[in-house]
Amino acid sequence: MLRQDLVQIASWIDPEARILDLGCGDGALLAHLRDSHRCTGYGIEIDDSSVLACVRADVNVVQADLESGLRMFADAMFDTVVLSQTLQAMHHVEAVLREMVRVGRRGIVSFPNFGHWSHAVALLGGRMPVTPDIPYQWYDTPNIHLCTPKDFELLAARLGLRITDRALLARSRPVTWLENLRATVAIYRFEKL
């Protein structure tokens, strides 16, 4: 079964679109988009076992570091560039977002909402939050750039990105009230202004 944020992302992608999936993991999104949307494209992935999983899934995968790997792509080669659940682990968040709208017409990102109320509770109790969406101890986490939906929107504005779609999810469902506190995952679609 496709992860819920990937289902939402897939719903924003046009049939036959050319996709670049950054940090594509086992290629589940690309395989789904190929089979259901007739999309083509490539995944970028650094992990050996994920690269192997992509080849097994018949998904095009390029083993590279996201921070430098986008250099090999020309401008506007893709319809949509996806970065799911990886933004918070990037060293150079701004550079990646700029690269996404350079090589693609649109970008889609999903990330865990650090503003979730349970995180505030953990912090009030004097501890860094450890939850199913952010399951790491503070001393052993890849997540170095956690943010909230509002934080992301401010950065997007500063980088000249127009947000065209937003979905805030909790337990795989859209959140409609107190969403900044209740959403566990935020997903945005954007394009260059």
């Binding site: 050319r18 490539y42 095009n60 995968v61 390029v62 083993q63 090999m72 080669m77």
Partner: peptide, 21 residues
């Protein structure tokens, strides 16, 4: 090899690339 990969992608070819450590 990455030069080849980039050129194949620019041509829209199906390509996978692994860099074995």
């Amino acid at each position: 090899t990455r030069e080849i990969v980039a050129a194949l992608i620019a041509n829209g070819r199906d390509v996978s690339y692994a860099e074995i450590d």
